[in-house]
Nucleic acid binder design. Structure first.
Length: 351
DNA sequence: AACCCGGGGAT
DNA sequence: ATCCCAGGGTT
């Protein structure tokens, strides 16, 4: 690691930093919320979610007191839903143990649910000016190229040595800006996909990968496991008033979110009708809907679907099912993006 | 150390 | 199709 990257880096940052809703706000809660949302998620995707979240839950106390269904709804479509559940647990902890004030110390932040080494460093440095590194994917990429380090950046050993090196680089001056500048550089100049903009880089003079023409080869990461493919059949079950949805189990994929009923495998019309009867419903008509595909990071769903009209049962609520109209669903229930093709078929309220 | 956990944009 | 994103928790 070359000496004195801080000065050119900060100079570049001051001139080129993007204006972001959570940036330069001097509010540790804003820093916290933004950092959690930004985990594995691009800035442009986060912006509208951040604004809406802060507007409804403007401080730690509001987050701690919010109903779970509501925070999940505010997170709907962002993915990795345990992020917001953990954040709320931490908010309760901050209220009870720290009087509602976000801790400033790295180790204390690290003890909170959902806050790991990166996020603790980000909050401590950005919100409180502590001299601690915040090493994310951007920083690892910049570092690997700058030093031409061919170690697997996913390994803890590499990450730990990056943290040590950076701590030596940071001045007491502006640790938060230093960390943000490293990330900003990775996000807009030393980019992950496509050609890095080395001619714009304030550290180009120091960069070993640039010097040796190896920028495209770095960073090195171990190959990831292939996705498994699952076939599913989605059932858009409708009675006189609405469409059936149900709550998913509280563990595993999309835990605790709502979904359209669906079963494993690609069912024929006949098999789908039989399945609906087995659910205690009386089918009246069936119609095939278009196929759809949804890709998670580790699973791919290949879906077929049927719209099935069933007779309304005035008495006895349908166990696990909720029959809702689209407006009520949109307002109250968080349904993951995987079902988007089929939630379009949900019934509108009669009027 | 390996695996689980979403969704979407860029190439 | 592939990559990867301002990662963290669990086992």
């Amino acid at each position: 690691m070359p000496e004195n990257i801080a000065e050119p880096l900060l100079k570049w940052y001051d001139k080129n930093k993007r204006i972001l809703p959570w940036r330069d706000k001097d509010n540790a809660y804003y820093t916290w919320v933004s950092e959690i949302m930004l985990q594995q998620t691009r800035v442009e995707a986060v912006k509208p979610y951040f604004q809406r979240f802060i507007q409804e839950l403007p401080d730690v106390a509001a987050l701690a007191a919010a109903p779970e269904e509501r925070i999940i709804k505010l997170w709907e479509g962002l993915g990795y839903y345990s992020r917001v559940r953990n954040m709320q647990k931490a908010a309760v902890q901050v209220m009870e143990e720290y009087g509602g004030r976000m801790p400033e110390d790295f180790e204390t932040l690290l003890s909170l649910k959902g806050i790991g080494r990166y996020t603790a460093g980000a909050i401590a440095s950005i919100a409180y000016g502590k001299k601690v590194p915040a090493v994310d994917g951007n920083v690892l990429r910049v570092y690997a190229r700058l030093t031409e380090n061919r170690g697997d950046i996913m390994k803890q050993s590499v990450r730990k040595s990056v943290e040590n090196d950076l701590t030596g680089q940071m001045s007491e001056d502006r640790p938060g800006d230093f960390n943000q500048a490293m990330m900003e550089l990775g996000a807009v100049v030393c980019v992950p996909n496509g050609a890095a903009k080395c001619e714009e880089c304030p550290l180009g003079h120091f960069c070993l990968a640039r010097k040796h023409g190896t920028v495209e080869e770095l960073p090195v990461k171990a190959p990831k496991k292939a996705r498994t493919i699952e076939q599913r059949t989605v059932l858009v079950i409708q009675d006189g008033v609405g469409t059936a949805i149900r709550k998913r189990p509280d563990t595993g994929l999309l835990a605790g979110l709502y979904e359209l009923p669906n079963v494993e495998g690609h069912l024929t019309e006949k098999a789908a009708l039989a399945r609906v009867k087995a659910m205690g419903l009386e089918p009246l008509r069936i119609e095939a809907l278009p196929d759809a595909k949804h890709i998670f990071s580790h699973i791919e769903w290949r879906m077929c679907a049927y719209r099935i009209a069933v007779s309304s049962l005035e008495e006895a609520p349908q166990g696990e099912f909720l029959f809702v109209d689209k407006r009520e669903s949109d307002k109250k229930y968080a349904i993951p993006s995987a079902f988007r093709t089929y939630t379009r078929y949900m019934k509108e309220e009669n009027s």
